[in-house]
Amino acid sequence: MTTVLVVDDDPAMVRTLSMNLTARGYDVVTAGSGTEALARVHGADLILLDLGLPDLTGVEVLTRLRRTSALPVIVVSARHDSRDKIAALDAGADDYVTKPVGIDELLARIRATVRRVPAVHPVFESDLLRIDVAEKQVWRDGHEVRLTPTEWRVLHTLLARPGSLVGQQELLQAVWGPAYEKETHYLRVYMATLRKKLEVDPSRPRHLVTEPGMGYRFVP
């Protein structure tokens, strides 16, 4: 059973979402504030997050969450301004829908988001590189390497299919969401940064390999 954490300070909205999700077979946990949400993420498979919370903004919740977790998040907000959408997506949201939203559309977005989340073997090790996915830690030659939340999401997506090609659009959608499918320059920037941090010789990468015009692969 998929567990959904509903984060909203509007009791009527929480009640409506909870009733509809439960009726369709989801397990529902609720939180009325950002602090409460961060305390209840353990065990959740997906978060529905409002931006207008009484203590922390939704973006602040996302920023804190992404320091330790790649848990999928769909923002459900009454804010229609593109700047709010960009801020939420850049902070790590997987999708953004505006209220009022039909329950059938929201359920479809939940299913699509859950499908995009890859299952990853918890630990990868090579001669000089060790990646612990569960703990979100990387070591190169015995030294811990710090990755940003977005760098983690790129690496996480590639690690889900070691050795296999992950297409550019697929990677963009998995990390930034459907609105970013054509922003291929994002991938060039982040892959270059990851290579500097993880590869012994970034100009001749061993693990983070580019397939020109197609995508990228993580080679064990």
Rank of each mutant, 00 (worst) to 15 (best):
D9P: 12
L56W: 01
Q137E: 11
L48F: 01
A112G: 11
N20W: 05
D127W: 09
V59W: 01
H121G: 05
L49E: 04
R161C: 04
D95C: 05
L159A: 13
T63W: 00
E144F: 04
H121L: 11
V73E: 01
T22N: 08
S77T: 03
D90H: 15
G58N: 02
A174Q: 04
T68S: 12
G215Q: 02
D132E: 11
L106T: 11
Q137W: 13
K182R: 13
V6N: 03
Q173L: 08
S82I: 11
A119E: 12
V200S: 15
S69Y: 05
V123R: 06
V75P: 01
G213E: 12
V133C: 08
P118L: 04
A112H: 09
L51G: 01
E135V: 05
V101M: 09
S69L: 04
Y190C: 00
E181S: 07
L165H: 03
V7E: 02
V117D: 15
L172I: 06
H207M: 15
T148R: 09
R116Y: 09
E105G: 12
V133K: 00
D127H: 08
G213I: 13
R40A: 14
S18K: 10
R79Q: 11
V41A: 03
L165F: 07
P122K: 05
T150D: 14
V61K: 00
E144K: 15
T98V: 12
A23T: 07
D50N: 06
T2P: 11
K99V: 03
Q137M: 15
L46N: 06
P205R: 15
P162Y: 13
R188I: 09
T30Q: 13
R206L: 14
G167V: 09
R130S: 14
D141G: 11
R188S: 08
L17V: 08
G52S: 05
V200F: 09
A174S: 08
P11S: 02
E151R: 09
A192Y: 14
P205F: 15
I131Q: 00
L62F: 04
T22W: 07
R161I: 04
L53D: 00
I47M: 15
V7F: 05
P178S: 10
L106D: 04
